[in-house]
Computed example of a mutant assay.
Amino acid sequence: MIQPLAYIHPEAKIAQNVVVEPFATIHRDVVIGEGTWIGSNVTIMDGARIGKNCKIYPGAVISGEPQDLKFDGEITTAEIGDNTTIRECVTINRGTKDKFKTVIGKNCLIQAYSHIAHDCTIGDYCIFSNSSTLAGHITVGDYVVLAGMVAVHQFCTIGSHAFVTGGTLVRKDVPPFIKAAREPISYAGINSVGLRRRGFSEEQIAEIQNIYRVLFVQNRNLTKAAAIIEAEFQATEIRDEILGFIRNSNRGVIKGFNQRAV
C-alpha cells in the first residue's frame, strides 16, 4: 500500500506488498523487499538496499551521502538485512570507495537518533540503543548491544556478543563475549547474562571467563597472555575466536580496569 502523498521515483524497485506512508520520499536507485513498512517523513536515498519485513520509522534518512570529505560521488550502497527495525530519526550513510557499502545485518534494532556512518559493517541481531553513534569504517559482530549514547571511534572493531554500557567512548577494539564500561573504556567482566539468553552452556561461559581472567585480570601483557591461552587451553571455536580477535586488532584492544596504568 503506497499512500498518494508519498513520493516514489518511478524507477525505484519496491515489492508489491510494501507499505509507504504519507510524505515519505524514495529516490531512484532504491530496492525494498517484501513486507517492509516505511513510515511518514522517511527519506530513502540512492543506493539503499532494504530487505524483507523491515520497519523504518518517521524521520529516518537511509543511504545519505557520506559525511567524508574524500567522498567523490562514487556509486555505493547502504544495505539493511531482513527483519531489521530502524527507529525515529536514525541516519545511515552509504559507503565510500573504501568498501563501497555500509551493511547492517538481519534482525537488528537501531533505536532513535542513532547514526551509522559510511563503510560500517554491522552483524545480525544487534541492538543499538538511543543516540548510539558510529563513525566510519567500524566493524561490529553479531549480537552486539550498545547502550544509550555510546560513541565509537572510526576503524574500531567490536566482537560478537559484546555489551557496551551507556555513555561509553569506544576508542579501542572491544573483544567478543565481554562487557565494556568506564572511562577510559575498560574490561568489565564477561557478558554472562547475554550469553545465557543466547543458549551458551555453563561450560562455555566458564571457558570464556577463564580465558579473560588470563587476558585482563592477571595483569599480564596481552601478547604473553595470548601465548599462555594458546598453550594451556584446549582448542575450541571460542578460544580461537578470542585469540584471533586479540592478534588481529588494528587499533589495539581495551585494557582491564587494573591495567590502565600499565
Results as ranks from 00 to 15, higher is better:
250 N>D: 15
108 C>Q: 13
67 Q>M: 11
199 G>I: 08
82 D>E: 13
198 R>G: 13
31 V>Q: 13
69 L>P: 08
50 I>P: 12
210 N>D: 15
252 G>M: 12
190 I>H: 10
186 S>K: 07
220 R>Y: 03
160 S>H: 10
132 S>F: 12
202 E>F: 09
169 L>W: 04
236 T>I: 01
96 T>N: 06
213 R>D: 12
168 T>C: 06
87 R>A: 08
118 H>F: 00
257 F>Q: 14
245 F>Y: 09
255 K>W: 09
122 I>F: 05
95 G>I: 11
66 P>E: 08
75 I>W: 03
70 K>C: 08
192 S>R: 04
78 A>F: 02
159 G>P: 06
215 L>D: 09
64 G>M: 02
144 V>H: 02
222 L>W: 05
195 L>H: 02
117 A>Q: 03
14 I>Q: 05
160 S>A: 14
41 N>F: 15
51 G>C: 12
151 A>Q: 05
221 N>H: 14
111 Q>V: 15
31 V>K: 11
186 S>Y: 05
100 F>A: 00
253 V>W: 06
261 A>Y: 01
92 I>P: 12
237 E>V: 05
261 A>I: 11
215 L>E: 07
7 Y>V: 12
176 P>E: 10
221 N>P: 04
93 N>E: 14
208 I>E: 08
226 A>K: 04
241 E>W: 00
23 F>V: 02
206 A>W: 00
22 P>V: 06
40 S>F: 10
17 N>V: 06
240 D>V: 06
144 V>S: 05
180 A>N: 06
137 H>S: 09
212 Y>N: 13
194 G>F: 07
140 V>W: 01
231 A>Y: 06
194 G>A: 10
180 A>Y: 00
232 E>K: 08
9 H>L: 07
169 L>P: 02
108 C>E: 04
173 D>N: 14
20 V>W: 05
261 A>E: 15
250 N>M: 11
105 G>H: 03
219 N>C: 08
57 Y>N: 03
48 A>H: 12
27 H>Q: 13
72 D>R: 12
217 V>W: 02
110 I>G: 01
133 T>C: 14
31 V>T: 15
19 V>G: 00
238 I>P: 08
131 S>N: 14
109 L>F: 14
133 T>R: 02
69 L>G: 03
60 A>Y: 08
67 Q>D: 09
140 V>C: 08
260 R>K: 15
127 I>K: 04
48 A>N: 11
28 R>M: 04
75 I>V: 13
76 T>A: 03
126 C>K: 04
131 S>F: 08
